[in-house]
Design a protein around this nucleic acid. Structure first.
Length: 501
RNA sequence: CGGGGUGUAGCGCAGUCUGGCUAGCGCACCUGGUUUGGGACCAGGGGGUCGAAGGUUCGAAUCCUUUCACCCCGACCA
């Protein structure tokens, strides 16, 4: 069948396809508030599953959750110079605390605040302030805190989940006695993110260090995980920052060491956001709709009763209910298989497409014919054709099938990345790699280019017209001497370059 | 903030140049019927102060003035 669930398709119009996926899968929609989205139940359930897994991983690595204020006094943000510069342009500012009736019948702000409050764009400053109070002795370290919250960054251009003015995230903040310990923490949390991305989202990532230009404002080192989307652009999916003593010095996060002297703590921060939902969509979904990795899918199996005559209803429904109960006892990935019966009065085809678009991994169709044979009609979201299978066999194998799907998604995504990653050794080849054949309406092109380079302003300047950025300098790779393809200088640094979101 | 564009039903649009019946169409929605192993069909129906304000006119979605909002391309985007 040529007809696709989603129009436009990926190759016709990738950004348009993305928007349609979000809409058709009922994940989120725009709100009356500029730049802010409404996350709908199906999208939020997905986020909740992500939260659940990550939260468990944070706790396993010794972190505790806490909550800090939404508002940050302006003076707090002013303490770390680079930090101010990085965020000042995109802050929402609260200046009043009351509304009064105005002349034209509307309301006007009144009660001007002595000091404006900033809606947090990130919480280093307010959390650092509290850390300074909580930390007195080396015995109070390390301090490892995480917060799940919303933040606001006044973006001019927004895309649902990928970049919105308000978004949900977690931000981890830790303080350590030594530099080495803080660096270990920074690396550890990057590993946690990479593990989550690969094992749960089925999304392969490149772990690496950011160049100076791409670094978090106020950090000494920023690590990130970078994933390739289906249009071959890179998406930064998580970051972990080593903040050195920049914030501890700005905020007086000091402790008394074992020798009795006073030392500044070493701090880190790390975060992932609802952008991961966007990453998930762009990694796996196809021209028929959303595709969810089973480990994060809010529902694994939907049972669609096929009822042709009213007399059949009771028997079919009873069969479906008992099947749902039986499947619900099966364990997948350490939890019960999430199964539900869709008894809405949609027609068969419409119902099928509804669940395809929403990415439910497995659809089961059960009608009188199947009941007679004690078999099921099984549709897998990763395969175009449905097939019959005895009920007993399906119940036995459901967990295995889900895991097979999970692995299949990862393998497919990894293949896409490998097929579109090239080692490039000259600037001419580099330009050719990133220049679309059709400038007016660029086709899907490029990918990840791995090149020797020197992180310097000359390099950055050459990248600007190509709209390419250094994504990261991969860690865990052997270092050999080479020549920078941009400046011709000798170097030992290799980077991954790509167009990005 | 610069350049371009668009505001008409929940969504997508036509109508505006050249003013004129009760403002239309597709999808969605509601009702009834026929259907139902795959995105149904037939019939009927509900839903609009045409972005806002002012003006011209016998008459404005349409012309004029002002204004607001949004979108696209730049710029910006830890």
């Amino acid at each position: 069948m040529a007809k696709t669930g989603i129009s436009p398709t990926r190759s016709e119009d990738y950004p348009g396809w993305y928007q349609q996926i979000v809409r058709s899968a009922d994940l989120a929609e725009n709100s009356p508030v500029r730049g802010c989205m409404v996350i709908k139940p199906w999208g939020y359930a997905l986020w909740e599953n992500m939260q659940g897994v990550l939260d468990g991983m944070f706790k396993e690595t010794g972190h505790e959750n806490a909550y800090f204020p939404l508002f940050i006094p302006k003076s707090f943000l002013e303490k770390e110079a680079e930090h101010v510069e990085g965020f000042a342009k995109e802050c929402a500012v609260v200046t009043h605390h009351r509304l009064e009736p105005g002349a034209d019948g509307g309301l006007v702000p009144a009660g001007k605040l002595e000091e404006p409050l900033i809606v947090r764009p990130t919480s280093e400053t307010i959390i650092g302030h509290m850390f300074a109070k909580w930390i007195e002795s080396y015995r109070d370290l390390p301090l490892k805190i995480n917060q799940w919250c919303n933040v606001v960054r006044w973006e001019m251009r927004v895309r649902l989940f990928l970049r919105t003015a308000e978004f949900l995230w977690q931000e981890g903040h830790t303080a350590h006695a030594t530099k080495e310990e803080a660096l270990d923490e920074t690396r550890l949390m990057l590993d946690v993110y990479a593990k989550f991305a690969e094992e749960y989202m089925a999304m392969p990532v490149v772990k690496g260090e950011k160049t100076e230009g791409e670094r978090f404002p106020g950090a000494d080192m920023t690590l990130s995980i970078e994933a390739m989307m289906q249009d071959r652009k890179a998406l930064q999916a998580g970051t972990s920052h080593f903040l050195g003593q920049n914030f501890s010095k700005a905020q007086e996060i000091k402790y008394q060491n074992a020798e009795g002297g006073e030392s500044y703590a070493w701090t880190t921060s790390w975060g992932v956001s609802t952008r991961l939902v966007g990453a998930l969509i762009m990694t796996h979904s196809d021209d028929d709709g959303l595709v969810l990795p089973p480990r994060l899918a809010p529902k694994h199996v939907v049972i669609c009763p096929v009822i042709r005559k009213e007399e059949e209803r009771a028997e079919v429904m009873e069969y479906c209910t008992s099947l749902a109960k039986e499947l619900g006892e099966v364990l997948y990935d350490g939890k019960r298989v999430a199964v539900f019966v869709d008894d809405s009065d949609k027609r068969g085809g419409e119902k099928k497409w509804f669940h395809i678009k929403r990415g439910v991994p497995i659809r089961l169709e059960v009608g009188p014919r199947d009941i007679k044979n004690d078999s099921l009609f099984v549709g897998r979201r990763d395969q175009p054709k449905s097939f019959g299978m005895p009920r007993i066999e399906f119940v036995e194998r459901v967990s295995e099938i889900l895991e097979e799907m999970q692995q299949g998604l990862y393998d497919r995504a990894l293949k896409l990345r490998m097929d579109n990653t090239q080692q490039i050794n000259s600037f001419d080849d580099f330009k050719a790699f990133f220049t679309p054949k059709n400038e007016a309406k660029p086709e899907v092109h490029g990918g990840f280019a791995e090149c020797y380079f020197v992180d310097c302003p000359e390099t950055d300047a050459l990248l600007v017209p190509l709209k390419v950025t250094p994504r990261c300098m991969p860690v865990d790779r052997e270092v050999e001497p080479g020549v920078c393809i941009f400046t011709g200088k000798p170097t030992q640094t290799r980077g991954v370059f790509a167009k990005s979101y």
